[in-house]
Design a protein around this nucleic acid. Structure first.
Lengths: 116, 116
DNA sequence: ATGAAAGTTAGCCATACGGCTAACTAATAG
DNA sequence: CTATTAGTTAGCCGTATGGCTAACTTTCAT
């Protein structure tokens, strides 16, 4: 499960719509195809991409292929984003503390100038 | 700012590494290029993609172009993922409540059978 | 047994991508 | 003023993408 593939899979509006639909519960290929004016082989290509990225799993029963969401792959994206936000916010915290320190120093210097 | 472009921008390992670096603070194009064994025009292409997706902003001062992270674009990905998780978890909650109900009914039926 | 349903495969086509090199421009440093 | 630095532009090339159609296979329903 690689971030390249997960982000890549989600970079297409059709595949994101498939993921959103599967959040509501599993669906067959035919059901997934219904909202799209797209040839079935094209829709199948999208499903294959989602499968290879780990976002979707599917299983054939008779002539119907049922697809379901695999939340672990979505979680890898969440984890990566959370890590970036953590780093970003730590940096903002340090910046804020630095600004506070400068403000205190500035107030101290102003008081010293006044007393001369 | 479109999710297509944001997810697409993040689907490449080089661009994710750039984003991670910029979480630590802004950097020049030359600084960003240092960790990569890649021709500068190639690295510039990646930066342009990150800019067009809204993830990065840049500004030229003299001959140096400084790049900085724009967290709003990352936030759109977070928002989208949070929405999917919400739907997914609501579905699991309803499923859990249904299972609980079935278990209660099964216990009730078992008591009725015993009392006959 | 036959027809219909639900995919599946193969290949085409135009566009996009991700690297490269070569040549170039604009800005500093000396 | 000249050399150096920090990008910038243009185009090449192989690969990937995202649609399509046609033909096909497997599985039910009749």
């Amino acid at each position: 499960m690689q971030l390249d593939h997960v982000f890549g899979a989600l970079s297409d509006a059709t595949r994101r719509a498939i993921v959103m639909r599967l959040c509501d519960g599993e669906a067959s290929v035919g059901e997934l195809a219904k909202p799209f004016e797209m040839a079935l082989p094209s829709l199948m290509k999208h499903i294959r991409i989602l499968e290879s990225s780990g976002l979707v799993a599917s299983e054939k029963t008779g002539r119907v292929r049922m697809c379901s969401l695999q939340t672990e792959a979505l979680a890898t994206v969440e984890v990566w984003l959370a890590a970036q936000r953590e780093i970003w916010e730590q940096r903002l915290d340090r910046l804020e503390m630095h600004v506070e320190k400068l403000k205190k120093e500035e107030r101290s210097n102003a008081r010293k100038r006044k007393s001369k």
